[in-house]
Amino acid sequence: MRLPVSWLAEWVDIPWAPHDLARRLTASGFEVEGVEGNGRDAVLELKTYANRGDSMSVLGVAREVAALTGGRVKMPEITRVAATGPAVAAPVLEAPAAAPRFLLRRLTGLDNRRATPTWMVERLERCGLRSISPIVDVTNYVLLELGQPMHAYDARRVKGALRARLAKPGEKLTLLDERSIELADDVLVIADDDGAVGMAGVMGGQGTAIEADATEVLLEVAYFSPDAVAGRGRRFGLATDASQRFERGVDPEGQHRAMERATALLLELCGGEAGPVAESLEARHLPQRKPVRLRRARLALLSGAQIPDQRVVASLTGLGLAGTAEDEGGRVTPPPGGFTWDYGPA
């Protein structure tokens, strides 16, 4: 992932020059493969590992920097957008283990012919993405910022309620890249009454694609299980920004945050109004965040140093971990985006 230092600096105070920052991030487990440019104009090239999906967003990297500095992440203010527009039918979960949380929102009266603001275009380009249209650009921007993939459907082309289900054997789908593929029955799809309209967590379909004249949109934000996405796109030579994040694991509690952030940006850029958020949820299939015991003796053994409690607390707070003190150390609850971490024996 490419990440401009100037964007990161809006989220967390950075006391180091870019190359020093890169060295410290690499030592902490966020390997930086290269630094392009200097100062606040520099861009970090981050390598992403299978168990560090949190490195694929500004938020995730900001948390890591906060842990290194003992500082705090400066989250942008994300407020709930008032629902003044028409509602959308709640999505149907036919494969809840694969898609346990699915949010939809209808936005109407949008003007997708407006120009995406220069500041957003430049940020997308510096991260390696080209500007397409305001609606698509906002979904990509929020993906980079919060690490949550999302998808916009042209509401005029959707027939009936959307549902997350497994593909029917031999079911066909024309993707956004205009390729027609045949799906196996272990591929999760988003479908309407006429059939599959997208490969869930990988790529949308051409039949509901956002064109320049789109004025009414269905905005999807979902949690898809890593096991339901991993390897599906690669069967067809696809490794998309969405699939790389879903197969590593996204924050299972971050969907509402991303929906409100994207909605506010879309209304700011395109005008219009938003309806209420429709959520379908099977909470028992979401990852569970279990408290982890943190012992001073084991921390000293692994680190080779006696780390003061105050410094430990500052680092854990920077990562977004909540904790309680105990005689031998404490117990901490992993942040929602870190459910794939392996903590070893308690």
Rank of each mutant, 00 (worst) to 15 (best):
G323Q: 10
R311W: 06
A161Q: 12
A164H: 10
G337E: 09
E10G: 03
W7P: 00
P335M: 00
T118R: 05
L129G: 00
L44E: 01
I307T: 15
H285T: 06
A164Y: 13
T240D: 01
V92T: 13
A196C: 05
L129E: 08
I210S: 09
E253N: 04
V313M: 15
S280E: 11
Q306F: 12
L267C: 06
R298E: 14
V43N: 06
T263V: 08
G304F: 02
S225F: 01
V92E: 12
S280V: 13
L143C: 10
Y141D: 08
G254D: 10
H19N: 08
V5E: 00
E94I: 01
I78H: 13
E282F: 15
F102N: 05
G233Q: 01
T79V: 14
D186K: 09
D20M: 00
H285V: 10
V217C: 12
T263Y: 02
P134S: 08
F224G: 02
G37K: 09
D185G: 05
V250G: 06
S131H: 05
D111Q: 09
A278T: 05
E178N: 14
Y343H: 03
A262N: 01
R289T: 02
T69N: 11
L8R: 08
D192T: 01
P169T: 06
K159R: 15
G37Q: 04
V313G: 13
E36F: 07
G128L: 04
D111Y: 04
Y153P: 12
S55K: 10
W16Y: 03
T333H: 06
H285M: 09
F339Q: 00
A297C: 03
F224H: 05
S280A: 15
A67P: 15
R179D: 11
T263N: 07
S131E: 04
V277R: 11
L175S: 07
G204N: 03
A152T: 07
A155C: 11
R123N: 08
G70W: 11
L266K: 08
A346S: 10
D241P: 13
A115E: 05
S303C: 15
G207K: 08
V136W: 13
K168Q: 12
E10N: 07
A230S: 01
R126M: 04
A82Y: 10
P336C: 03
A27S: 10
Y223W: 12
M199S: 11
A161S: 14
R130C: 07
R296K: 15
P4M: 00
A155D: 14
G275S: 04
D213P: 11
G329N: 03
E125S: 04
K172A: 11
E178K: 14
R23Y: 05
E45F: 01
L238A: 07
R156M: 10
V250P: 04
E145Y: 00
H151G: 15
L110I: 02
R261W: 06
S6P: 10
S28G: 02
A191V: 10
R157L: 14
E211W: 13
D54R: 13
P117W: 00
L176V: 08
G170Q: 08
D186Q: 09
A9E: 12
A325M: 07
A191D: 12
H151S: 15
P276Q: 10
G109Q: 04
R179F: 12
L183N: 07
I307P: 12
A167C: 07
G205T: 02
R106Y: 00
A230Y: 01
R114N: 03
Q288E: 14
